[in-house]
């Protein structure tokens, strides 16, 4: 997402609440700052992403939430002039360590994009794409099994099982997005990043994706960027509120929406700006 807002002097973010969770954090960000050329888009973000939970990143446009999401699988690497400082670690290993192979990292941290982007290939080939490049299936039968289970977990199997050879671009928008989710989970990632996965979908398709996110939570750690506060409240356990490149407030979703500690959060969730 584009960072069009002027970078302002970083305001001191309120101290991040220490979360008392019994599970260990899956990913930990410390002092994460992002620069596009010489413009700073993200200021010293500290965040712990909890395993097998849904974390929602909310905030007004240009607040840096998508930027942070894209840091977590180093998708920002493909943008020219973008640099990241600070550390993001996953299971105690820094993902920005030069020794880390970004290809392997992205196999562990999958991503679903704002606009459904199935490849112009058949439905089967779309799902088989990841397993194929990572060599996950030894033969056709194994590949068939991976494709079927991925489509089932993305609750798309029943709708497409008779037309796996048809192009993925021929599906409806909601089906395409579920195909993209199936494609992402086919490589068995540990974390799935979702960048406004429902913003291009109608309410019914959105409801199905949200339902799916609930089911996926059993097996995956999910981080979702959303513009819809209702969606964040519905699907997530933790919510992080970003504003002007700062992580303003991070905590239990229920607490953040009912009793925010920062007045900027209060202003945003009550609709005074954003």
């Amino acid at each position: 997402m584009s960072m069009t807002e002027d970078s302002q002097t970083p305001e001191a973010s309120t101290p991040v609440e220490t979360l008392t969770t019994e599970t260990t954090p899956k990913m930990i960000g410390r002092d994460v700052s992002v620069f596009y050329a010489d413009k700073q888009a993200l200021f010293d973000v500290d965040i712990d992403i909890v395993e097998k939970e849904v974390t929602a990143l909310i905030g007004p446009s240009g607040c840096g939430k998508s930027t942070f999401l894209r840091c977590m699988n180093r998708m920002n690497d493909v943008i020219e002039g973008c640099s990241v400082t600070g550390t993001i670690s996953m299971d105690d290993g820094d993902i920005y360590d030069p020794k880390v192979d970004v290809v392997q990292l992205r196999a562990r941290v999958g991503m679903v994009f704002q606009k459904p982007n199935p490849f112009p290939k058949s439905i089967y080939e779309n799902v088989a794409y990841g397993p194929r490049i990572h060599g996950l299936a030894a033969n056709k039968a194994e590949m068939d099994a991976i494709v079927e289970s991925s489509l089932r977990r993305a609750s798309l199997w029943e709708e497409v099982k008779d037309r796996l050879e048809q192009p993925g671009t021929g599906l409806s928008g909601g089906q395409q997005q579920r195909l993209c989710i199936a494609r992402a989970i086919a490589v068995e990632p540990e974390v799935i990043l979702m960048d406004e996965p429902c913003s291009a979908l109608d309410p019914i398709a959105t409801a199905r994706i949200e339902e799916l996110i609930h089911e996926l939570r059993e097996n995956f750690t999910i981080v979702i960027v959303t513009h819809s506060m209702q969606q964040a409240a519905r699907v997530s356990q933790k919510t992080a509120f970003f504003h002007l490149g700062n992580l303003v407030e991070y905590g239990e979703t229920e607490v953040l929406f009912t009793n925010p500690s920062d007045e900027r959060t209060q202003g945003y969730i009550t609709g005074r700006f954003g």
């Binding site: 290809v103 994009f113 794409y129 490049i133 992402a184």
Partner: peptide, 19 residues
């Protein structure tokens, strides 16, 4: 978006180009 989708799956640049 197609390129990013492929990179997001952990494909390298040449895999993305060829496939």
């Amino acid at each position: 978006s197609l390129r990013e989708g492929s990179y997001g799956m952990g494909a390298t640049k040449s895999e993305t180009i060829v496939r």
